[in-house]
Write a protein that binds this DNA or RNA. Structure first.
Lengths: 110, 110
DNA sequence: CGAAAGGTCAACCGTTTGGTTGAATATGCC
DNA sequence: GGCATATTCAACCAAACGGTTGACCTTTCG
């Protein structure tokens, strides 16, 4: 909808929402299944998903009574490009990039 | 200092703070000079700078009565790497990532 | 049909955020 | 010493955030 840098970065600032994105890296999920590993109400997760969708980070499609959530990484591009403007000072760090999948797909989930 | 993804993304979520970072791309600045173009109080800018420093995005060094602020892009690297992890499945974003690497690697050439 | 499952809505609550103002604290300068 | 400059501190405020609960639709299924 209106994925500005504000909304994207604000959406990414919450650990629960980042965990949700990481979960969606593996597969599309229904809202209830997204909520399952978290120790908070379904309504709270529903709100988080709304925020992620408003930021353009996920898309939600209702099929039957189930609402499927899937990753929509385009919104990340805007923010990523913005950040890379500062990257000119960064040394190359492929190690960190490789460590990403290990760390995020491993530890980060509740 | 505790530059987590939480604090980094939260710091980046505010447009004023992103503007400050952009200004600091050009040169190090004193707090008063950072505040000058904004239509808000000096105290407000001082708070923003504290948040940026807590996120590790800037460093502040006091010389005399002037506190100099300089960009500290290392904290961005963590967040950038995190984001790029999502981009790898997206062809469009893959291009951005390749461009990023090309630029970074290009610095070594004469 | 009626009941259960999947989600959202609405109202509420405590905490955080982003801003203000005025006083306070250093530091530099004549 | 005394005054201006640079910056932070403290108290306050409205709005936004992250969560809860209970009521409410919609869809599926026996």
């Amino acid at each position: 909808m209106d994925p500005t840098l504000d909304t994207v970065f604000a959406a990414l600032a919450d650990p629960t929402r980042r965990s949700i994105l990481t979960m969606l890296l593996e597969d599309d999920m229904a809202v209830t299944d997204v909520a399952e590993p978290f120790e908070m109400s379904l309504a709270a997760i529903s709100k988080h998903l709304t925020i992620l969708a408003a930021a353009g980070l996920i898309a939600q499609e209702k099929r039957g009574r189930v609402k499927w959530c899937k990753l929509e990484p385009d919104a990340l591009k805007t923010a990523s490009v913005w950040m890379q403007g500062f990257g000119q000072f960064e040394p190359v760090n492929l190690d960190a990039f490789e460590a990403f999948l290990e760390r995020e797909l491993g530890e980060d989930r509740p």
